[in-house]
Design a protein around this nucleic acid. Structure first.
Length: 286
DNA sequence: CTTCAAGCTCAGGTTACCTCA
DNA sequence: GTTGAGGTAACCTGAGCTTGA
């Protein structure tokens, strides 16, 4: 298998043809960022960094409280951000969504959180927003996207694997999800795509490796044979020159391994060692 | 013009929940 | 009913970039 083969195979599959993967989007995306700032009013300044770091420390210190703290941490860290955004989005959407991530918090888990932390009011607010949609009473934290939502997200992902804030907002509105959820979905989707591509690449390289190993084995064997030939000059080498036979296909004298023009230029090499041994390979082609 | 802090998004990794065999 | 594996939403972290002071 040649290099060309390598280049013409599945390695590029996910990249172009399906539009599922775009080249590292950093630059493109960053370019997109600029106009996106026009929509900053949709995303009020958050206090993510500081709060998140603080609570993260708490998490690492108290693993047993991970769940409660984790959710709370995010709520706390995004308190202003999420809730405000949510309120705004609620204004935009007109109502809270049955599929929203907030709805995935059960009353029970929120109660747990209340016991663990002091910011009850915020949780209460979330809870009250959520309660009417979470009637199943399941303690699920995770949202399960509906088929329609998944299809729409997939379609959107096929069009562009990253979203600018405007697109995110629009999609979130369309899906009755929070922009954050859309963002997370796209992040996870990109990760899945990359993982899948890596698996495909890995499989492909494995096959290549197997083929090359086989080829290598074959060449090693051939080399051994040639070395054996060299160490023990075959009978025909000891014969008078007159008895040397001519290779029928290329009309070179067999047994010497020296091509015609090698005498002119000692540095030119034949693409492949050219041996013709009428004894071991009576019908060998060159 | 340079520096710096703040904010945003992303990739990569992890966690935790859910489903299903 | 229990369990383990796989899928995936949500989260954490560090890095890079932009913007405004």
């Amino acid at each position: 298998m040649g290099f060309e083969d390598l280049c013409n195979t599945g390695l590029g599959l996910g990249l172009g043809s399906q539009g599922m993967l775009e080249p590292p989007l950093k630059s493109d995306h960053q370019r997109e960022k600029k106009p996106c700032l026009k929509f900053d009013h949709l995303f009020p300044p958050s206090s993510t960094s500081a709060a998140t770091r603080t609570v993260t420390t708490a998490r690492s210190l108290e693993p047993s409280l991970k769940l409660g703290l984790s959710d709370k941490a995010y709520q706390a860290s995004r308190k202003i951000d999420v809730n405000k955004a949510y309120e705004e989005s609620a204004d935009v959407y007109g109502q809270s969504s049955p599929h929203s991530a907030v709805s995935s918090f059960s009353n029970a888990s929120i109660k747990r959180e209340r016991d663990l932390v002091s910011e009850e009011i915020e949780v209460e607010r979330v809870s009250s927003r959520v309660s009417d949609e979470d009637d199943e009473g399941s303690a699920r934290k995770k949202l399960r996207l509906t088929k329609e939502q998944s299809v729409l997200l997939e379609d959107s992902f096929k069009e562009h694997s990253t979203l600018n804030p405007k697109q995110k907002q629009a999609l979130a509105k369309q899906l009755n999800l929070r922009p954050r959820q859309v963002e997370v979905w796209f992040q996870n989707r990109r990760a899945r795509t990359k993982l899948k591509k890596t698996e495909v690449d890995c499989e492909f390289l494995k096959n290549c490796c197997e083929k090359l190993t086989g080829e290598n084995r074959r060449l090693q064997k051939e080399l051994q044979e040639l070395k054996a030939l060299k160490l023990s000059p075959p009978l025909y080498m000891q014969l008078p020159a007159a008895t040397l036979t001519m290779c029928p296909s290329c009309e070179r004298i067999g047994g010497t391994g020296i091509s015609d023009n090698s005498s002119k230029s000692p540095f030119t090499m034949a693409p492949k060692p050219h041996f013709y041994n009428p004894f071991t390979h009576p019908s060998a082609a060159c």
